[in-house]
């Protein structure tokens, strides 16, 4: 790592001030995306603002017809949240496949969403549920938030504080793990909330998480895996690496979407 100055604010206000004051500063939550990159000397922030000890960023809360999750909530806290298990079980199941138990003790949902790794799981859940990302400045719909790999609508000096997830019992995440990294080779999150059906895909697209309108339209008519028969996504624009080429990834999107729909339907309302 290159050297940096270290700050550990205890309020959101302090964090925002530090972010404004320090040029080339990076926010550090669980550190499991940023620190490996810094260790490889591929990132060299002049200042680290550690936001892991800001009480305002933690907690999972039921609010009307949605669940609000603090950005600093760790993956294991999400997985163990009874509120989430009861109201959005598909979301509570997402962190089970993120990293490993040790990573889940440190990594945070806000960190994952802010980083928008093209192979990460939470972006699919946020987009697949139609979540709202709440920052110190504003509310951003997931559809507007994710803007291509490692790119989001966040402005400099903006900190994600919470995510608001609409309650959707019929939802599920299916992931085909990258055999080395454990990230999503392909991951598909599906949800049905009234007439709103969403299918969000991570890992597959060269430009990060995306929705599949054709699948959504078919599932809107009938939310059943069979509705996707004969449908597929194009291999154009799919990722290509030594473990999976575009054609295979495109194929997996269809397989996993069908399986996710079946999983969602298997839940008791």
């Amino acid at each position: 790592m290159y050297n940096f100055t270290f700050h550990q604010p205890t309020t959101l206000r302090q964090a925002v001030n530090l972010l404004a004051k320090n040029e080339d500063a990076k926010l550090l939550a669980g550190g499991h995306s940023l620190l490996p990159v810094m260790k490889q000397r591929l990132a060299s922030p002049a200042a680290i603002i550690d936001i892991s000890r800001i009480p305002e960023l933690s907690g999972v809360e039921l609010k009307g017809r949605s669940v609000v999750v603090g950005a600093g909530t760790t993956h294991s806290e999400v997985a163990n949240s009874q509120v989430l298990k009861d109201s959005i079980p598909g979301l509570a199941e997402v962190p089970a496949s993120i990293g490993d138990p040790h990573v889940r003790h440190r990594g945070t949902i806000g960190g994952s969403i802010a980083n928008n790794d093209p192979n990460a799981d939470y972006p699919a859940a946020a987009l697949g549920l139609g979540a709202t990302i709440i920052t110190n400045k504003r509310r951003i719909a997931a559809d507007d938030f994710f803007q291509g790999m490692f790119t989001t609508a966040l402005e400099p000096n903006e900190i994600i504080t919470k995510m608001q997830f609409p309650i959707a019992k019929k939802c599920a995440y299916q992931k085909f793990k990258h055999p080395a990294s454990g990230f999503a080779l392909v991951g598909v999150f599906v949800s049905k909330r009234g007439s709103d059906v969403r299918v969000a895909v991570t890992g597959a697209g060269a430009n990060g998480v995306f929705r599949v309108p054709e699948f959504e339209a078919a599932l809107k008519k009938r939310f059943n895996a069979k509705s996707l028969d004969g449908l597929s996504v194009s291999a154009d624009g799919m990722n290509n690496d030594i473990h999976a080429g575009p054609e295979y990834r495109a194929h997996l999107v269809g397989v996993l979407a069908r399986r996710a729909v079946a999983d969602a339907n298997a839940r008791k309302d």
Partner: peptide, 23 residues
């Protein structure tokens, strides 16, 4: 089933970490 050291045509090791080389 899992492991393979892969070089690209320029001689760069593509599977150069546990992120790419499947243990």
């Amino acid at each position: 089933l899992l492991e393979g050291a892969v070089y690209d045509a320029d001689g760069q090791l593509v599977s150069g970490s546990f992120m790419d080389y499947a243990m």
